[in-house]
Design a protein around this nucleic acid. Structure first.
Length: 737
DNA sequence: GAATAAATTGTTTTT
DNA sequence: CAATTTATTC
């Protein structure tokens, strides 16, 4: 029984309790992934369960991949048949087989947020409503909220129909849903909802999956919404072997419809539930864990638990008070360089922030210092304009009913098909109840000859590409699209830096397609497009790469790092100002903070700035209440005005600060601040001397030659990026010759 | 119909 | 401040 020998008692009980409903309350770092993987392996190896009968739901594709790898390691290669995937991936797989039962075609496409918004704007226009009064973004979030709670257009009208505005919102909702169907498209919420609809209207389909999935496990259960709950309930009701794992203290997706009651009420909803708590933390030091416990203890309405650890005491948490956001970034990066000089790797560090906008300053400094970093989130690769354009082409080829994508690319690159022509076509399509593409195929009688010929040429090109699609691989098809549409030629016309980077991105896209073909079993265009829709940035994060990681706190869920920086810890930034008014939202922010603290294994840095620019205007934010909730004996202060100082004094200090010098890192004299500094931006590396002609190795830019050297600066010509001026004291440079 | 200039608007977090 | 939308001109 080596499978369970390595586990502690609670973990072992969780693995052995295979039958019936099981709720595992797993604190941060308590080895829950370990429990799930061992449980799966135990079911297969010891209980003789077929891999085919197991369904494991994870929160991200990355978690799914890792879980599969770990199960395979325990089992020795029998993990292929297990369904280990996200809710969305599982549902898409189910829908792909049987969606025709509910009136969609199997070549359906998945709309992302921006497609949704375009579609919604069309709806508002069609209903003659004012976008000012019915803000598309607000409408979309209202619809999404309704969908998360499984309220369809009819129920919405019934529930909110009294009020005039809500009645209109209901109309928008209904039209939006109709249009999705006309376009043969699903939005993200639909992926779950339509699966439930399929199950409810086709009992034989449900029956098949109910019988098949004898054992179901759901990870990150605290972040499931009502629809996902319903889905799980349906799937598990036959065998009743449902195991959910979660931590109410880590519920951070309430805004996305996650319902914390799913976990709090699990015992009520499933009779004879066994509850197991995992309370030993294996990840963090005692000091970090205590800080986390103390912060989250300020929340009400949580399940009682007390995380403990047998790990070392560790070092205190460093709280750094920065003059402003630039100083904050420079401090963090100085500490990273210092650590690296002592033998740590860049990959041991993560910088976590509340909003993506905060990443910029850190990127600037990292770039300037030539430190390798990887940023997760922000503008996704697939959200870039040129990539979205090509995807839109592919979508139309896959699903010609997709008017939204068709409209996006019909005049990209320019073909002289303008707004006037398109609205005529729209009108004709609406009148005849056909798609835009079909209207284009028969447009001779509504358009003047010249325009009709232009449209005809476009339709001809598209139908040729559709023929190519039937015989070519995805990569070949993309190449054909880039070539025949003249997309690349258009970019080559003017070789601005922007266009060059677009071409590079398109090449990267081809690489992605090639990789997909190499790895994936199903190599169809449909599968490729699905893959793109469901994969996120975090999924592609490679932790073995030696680079500093930048991401939002949400993105960091489920990850861990030796050294973590929690930055921007100020009232109004974290917690966000809009969350400060509402108790429930504030508690969610606090849980997010708990998640952040518990990502750190060894060392936690917390930073906040006295002064910060937010949309062009200066803000003076007091330190975050969450920092004040950490007991003082766990903290070591650094930076400006380490002691307590009133808010107005802070404002004075920040306002009278010398303007920052741009230029080299950490060399400016910041002494005249009215208060003694407890920390100076200087690192002792003066022993290193560079001379002209030396070969040096840089952490990010590789090998280069020193062409100019002084006591404080060197100019190095790198083989890869050309010449750079660097600060001797801080650049990650090694002499190699 | 398309390119440029001006004006306006708004920011969580993401499967 | 920056990104997006709208107005203006060619």
């Amino acid at each position: 029984m080596d499978l369970i020998d390595s586990l502690n008692e609670a973990q072992r009980n969780a693995v052995l309790a295979t039958e019936g409903p099981l709720l595992i309350l797993a604190g941060a770092g308590s080895g829950k992934t370990r429990v799930i993987t061992h449980r799966i392996a135990y079911l297969i190896k010891e209980k003789g369960v077929s891999p085919y009968n197991i369904l494991a739901i994870t929160f991200t594709n990355k978690a799914a991949r890792e879980m599969r790898e770990r199960v395979e390691a325990l089992l020795g290669g029998e993990a292929r048949d297990i369904w280990i995937m996200t809710f969305h991936a599982a549902c898409v797989r189910i829908l792909r087989r049987d969606i025709e039962h509910i009136g969609y075609s199997r070549s359906f496409v998945i709309y992302d947020a921006s497609d949704q918004l375009t579609l919604l704007k069309n709806c508002i226009k069609e209903l003659d409503l004012n976008e000012k009064l019915y803000d598309p973004k607000a409408m979309l979030s209202a619809i999404s909220k309704a969908k998360d709670k499984m309220i369809g257009p009819d129920e919405y009208a019934k529930a909110y129909g009294e009020d005039f505005r809500n009645k209109k919102i209901g109309d928008i909702y209904r039209l939006y849903q109709d249009k999705l169907k006309k376009n043969n498209a699903l939005d993200f919420d639909d992926i779950i909802l339509k699966t439930i609809e399929l199950f409810k209207s086709n009992p034989e389909v449900l029956d098949y999956y109910q019988r098949r999935f004898k054992y179901i496990m759901v990870d990150e259960y605290q972040d499931t919404n009502a629809a996902q709950y319903q889905l799980i309930k349906l799937l598990s009701s036959y065998h009743q072997n449902l195991c959910v794992v979660g931590d109410d203290d880590q519920s951070i997706y309430g805004w996305r419809g996650a319902d914390i009651r799913n976990i709090l009420d699990f015992e009520k909803d499933f009779k004879n539930t066994k509850v197991i708590k995992l309370e030993q933390n294996y990840r963090s030091t005692k000091q970090i864990l205590e800080a986390a416990n103390e912060v989250v203890a300020n929340n009400k309405g949580r399940k009682a638990k007390k995380l403990w650890t047998a790990n070392d005491d560790g070092t205190p948490i460093t709280v750094y008070t920065a003059a402003d956001e630039h100083d904050e970034a420079e401090y963090a990066i100085m500490r990273i360089l210092e650590g690296v000089a002592q033998g740590k790797s860049f990959g041991d560090y993560a910088i976590l922030y509340r909003t993506n906008a905060q990443s910029r300053v850190f990127e600037d400094v990292l770039n300037r210092e030539g430190i390798p970093y990887k940023m997760v989130g922000g503008l996704r690769f697939y959200d870039r304009k040129e990539i979205k354009d090509i995807i839109a082409y592919l979508r139309v080829l896959q699903n010609p009913l997709d008017d939204i994508s068709l409209r996006r690319i019909v005049n990209v690159p320019r073909r002289g098909i303008g707004e006037g022509t398109l609205s005529k076509l729209d009108e004709s399509a609406a009148k005849r109840g056909i798609s835009l593409y079909d209207a284009m195929m028969e447009c001779d009688d509504i358009l003047p000859g010249r325009t009709a010929r232009t449209i005809g040429k476009f339709v001809e090109m598209m139908s040729e590409l559709m023929a190519v699609k039937e015989v070519a691989t995805v990569t070949q098809l993309i190449n054909e699209v880039l070539d025949r549409t003249g997309y690349i030629k258009e970019l080559e016309k003017d070789d601005s830096e922007e266009n060059q980077s677009r071409i590079q991105n398109l090449q990267e896209f081809l690489t992605v397609a090639q990789e997909f073909e190499n790895k994936s079993e199903d190599k169809s265009l449909q599968a490729f497009l699905e893959n793109i829709s469901l994969v996120t940035d975090v999924d592609n994060l490679d932790e073995n790469e030696d680079a500093v990681i930048l991401m939002t706190l949400h993105g960091a869920k489920g990850l861990e790092f030796d050294n973590v920086f929690l930055v921007g810890m100020e009232e109004g930034v974290f917690p966000l100002s809009r969350a400060m008014l509402d108790e429930a939202q504030l508690e969610e922010e606090r849980r997010l903070c708990y998640v952040g603290i518990t990502r750190a294994r060894k060392k936690l840095y917390i930073t906040h700035a006295l002064q910060r620019n937010i949309y062009g205007s200066v803000n003076y934010n007091p330190v975050s209440r969450f920092v004040e909730e950490i007991p003082e004996h766990l903290i070591e202060h650094e930076g400006y005005e380490a002691g307590g100082v009133s808010r107005s004094e802070r404002k004075y200090i920040a306002a009278t600060a010398e303007p920052r010098r741009t230029g080299t890192l950490f060399t400016q004299d910041q002494g005249d601040f009215g208060v003694p500094l407890t920390h100076r931006h200087k690192r002792d590396r003066s022993a290193v001397k560079f001379t002209e002609g030396q070969k040096v190795q840089h952490a990010k830019w590789g090998i280069g030659t020193v062409v100019e050297a002084s006591d404080s600066e060197v100019v190095v010509v790198f083989d890869s990026v050309g010449s750079k001026r660097l600060a001797v004291d801080f650049a990650p440079l090694k002499v190699i010759e």
